[in-house]
Simulated scan of single mutants.
Amino acid sequence: MDCQANHSIGCTVDQCKHHCSTEPYCSLNKITVGTHETNPTMVECTDCQSFEKK
């Protein structure tokens, strides 16, 4: 399968099904970002909810 990198969505998570292994980008057209905190105040409080394990 040839990955179509979306250059608007940078990604370095190699374990994700949507990561383009030859480039640091996601192959999805859009992603969903969410949080696991009631009051997120730091980058660590957010999650890519479009993540799927390879």
Rank of each mutant, 00 (worst) to 15 (best):
C26F: 09
M42I: 00
T12E: 11
G34K: 05
Q15C: 02
I9R: 04
T41Y: 01
S8C: 11
K17Q: 13
T12Q: 11
E37Q: 12
E37I: 01
E23D: 14
G34D: 00
S21I: 11
D14E: 15
T22N: 13
K17D: 07
I31F: 12
H19S: 07
T35E: 11
I31N: 08
I9Y: 06
M42V: 05
G34W: 04
T12N: 14
T41L: 05
N6V: 14
K30I: 07
E37A: 13
T35Y: 03
T38Q: 03
S27M: 12
C26E: 11
P24M: 08
T35R: 04
C16I: 03
T35K: 03
E23P: 10
C11P: 05
C16P: 03
L28A: 01
T22P: 00
S27D: 05
S21L: 10
D14T: 10
G34V: 07
P40F: 03
P40Y: 02
T22E: 13
H36L: 07
I9L: 15
T35G: 02
T32F: 10
H7C: 03
T35S: 14
S21A: 08
G10R: 14
C16T: 02
H19Q: 09
T41S: 05
P24V: 05
K30Y: 12
K17I: 03
I31M: 10
V13N: 14
I31Q: 06
Y25A: 04
T35H: 06
G34Y: 01
N39P: 00
S8Q: 13
H19W: 12
V33I: 15
G10P: 15
T35A: 04
V13E: 10
N39L: 15
S21G: 11
N6A: 06
S8M: 10
E37D: 03
H18Y: 15
T22G: 11
T22M: 12
E23Q: 14
H18N: 13
T22R: 07
P40A: 03
H19C: 04
S21E: 11
T12C: 10
C26G: 08
T22A: 13
G10C: 14
V33T: 06
H7K: 14
V33Y: 06
N39D: 08
H36K: 15
D14Q: 14
N29M: 02
C11I: 04
N29Y: 09
Q15V: 09
H36A: 09
P40N: 00
N6Q: 13
Y25F: 15
C11E: 04
E23A: 12
T12I: 12
D14C: 08
S21M: 11
T41I: 00
E23H: 08
C26N: 11
Y25L: 00
T35N: 02
V33G: 01
C16H: 01
G10A: 15
